[in-house]
Design a protein around this nucleic acid. Structure first.
Lengths: 211, 211
DNA sequence: ACCGCCATCCCTGAAAATAGGGATTTGTAA
DNA sequence: TTACAAATCCCTATTTTCAGGGATGGCGGT
């Protein structure tokens, strides 16, 4: 019997997934979490074999939660999950310790396949995910990969940009010089590989950095 | 027996929802659709009582599909569904003929409640949705409401902006003068109530106009 | 003790966007 | 046919952003 925990910030998705897995033999949903922190806490006091982990969650995202969980529990398997086919989500999750990854547009057959494969100790990525990773490796992208992790201040600036504040206004809001904000902007453009503000906000959305 | 069709662009959500509804007495899932067009087609040849309709879908979104369906089938009930708590989604769906609206972060109890209420011919909105609508009405927002529907050209320009193209580049791409693009930009800023490009892209995302 | 990252600050010139006016044509629905 | 929305084009002045350098102090890890 595989003890599964579902971590997703949409209750309806959790309920659906629970109903889906309930019918399957050999799988038992033993818990749910609406963010990464809840998932970590739950796994500490309960016996969980596998976590179905959404990447984008409030409080603590799937990547951080995966790191945390893999540090403390070596036997725990984690199956990454997301809507967007962004290679950063996938690679971040796998690097953090996830053993598999599927997209939300895949069907239940693949989901079941993934769970069983992971439980056997193997790795599973859906065909589509595999293709994303492959083309990502073949391109130059991986070579010139920068550390896209944003600092706390950068995230604050990014969010301020997204709500339409100008450089000057952001400086006033955060009590720093506009020059400093300019530096943060430049670093944001570099880290998110954006040519201008519009693409910056767009890429931030795609990578789940905002909302 | 209520014949239900589920329209959502994520297969996993459909599968979960099907599993969820399967267990419930009096409800039968008779079909699924991954976009609005499929939903419309399916309702034409099959007997469907109620559609659970996601707002954000490719090809044809939930709002358009709802309009289409309500035009042809007066008895059909439509339950709107979305992740984001944007009042535009809600009001658009209800104006288009949906009889109810819930968010994806609500649980299965409310879902079942919504379905049964709609089937009785009544209206259902979840508590959270109700709050969103209420505060929206109390604020000035409704008064100064403009027609936010974007024209085809405006959508093209918006998408070009989001991928980082400048006004000049967009003009070259669409074979129009940069002045024309400037006009489209101004109209976009007005329609989406944005102060600048960053907020424009942000609002476009929130309203599901891109991706 | 040193290195790298973070956060802070400064400068200039060029490019782009925005505010604020105009204006014409075309199609279409009332 | 008339009215309206959509799409096109034009102008000036101002604000904002971007590219390109540069610099300093703090803090955590090796």
């Amino acid at each position: 019997m595989i003890n599964v925990l579902i971590a997703d910030d949409h209750q309806m998705f959790i309920d659906g997934m629970k109903a889906l897995l309930q019918d399957l033999p050999g799988i038992k949903v033993v818990g749910e979490a609406s963010n990464g922190k809840e998932a970590v806490v739950h796994c500490k006091d309960h016996s969980v074999d596998l976590v179905i982990m959404d990447v984008n969650m409030p409080e603590m995202d799937g990547v951080e939660a995966t790191k945390e969980l893999c540090k403390t529990n070596k036997n725990l398997k984690i199956l990454g999950l997301s809507m967007h086919r962004d290679r950063h989500f996938i690679s971040d999750m796998l690097k953090s310790g996830a053993s598999g990854y599927i997209l939300k547009n895949t069907g239940k057959k693949e989901l079941l396949d993934a769970i069983q494969t992971l439980y056997k100790g193997e790795t599973y990525v859906s065909e589509e995910v595999n293709k994303i990773l492959l083309t990502s490796f073949l391109k130059d992208s991986a070579k010139y990969e920068v550390n896209e992790k944003l600092s706390g201040r950068e995230t604050e600036v990014l969010e301020s940009i997204a709500i339409g504040l100008t450089t000057l206004e952001i400086g006033e809001k955060l009590f720093i010089s506009k020059n400093t904000v300019e530096t943060h902007r430049k670093n944001l453009l570099y880290k998110l590989k954006a040519k201008n503000t519009a693409e910056l906000v767009n890429n931030a959305y795609k990578r789940g950095l905002i909302n």
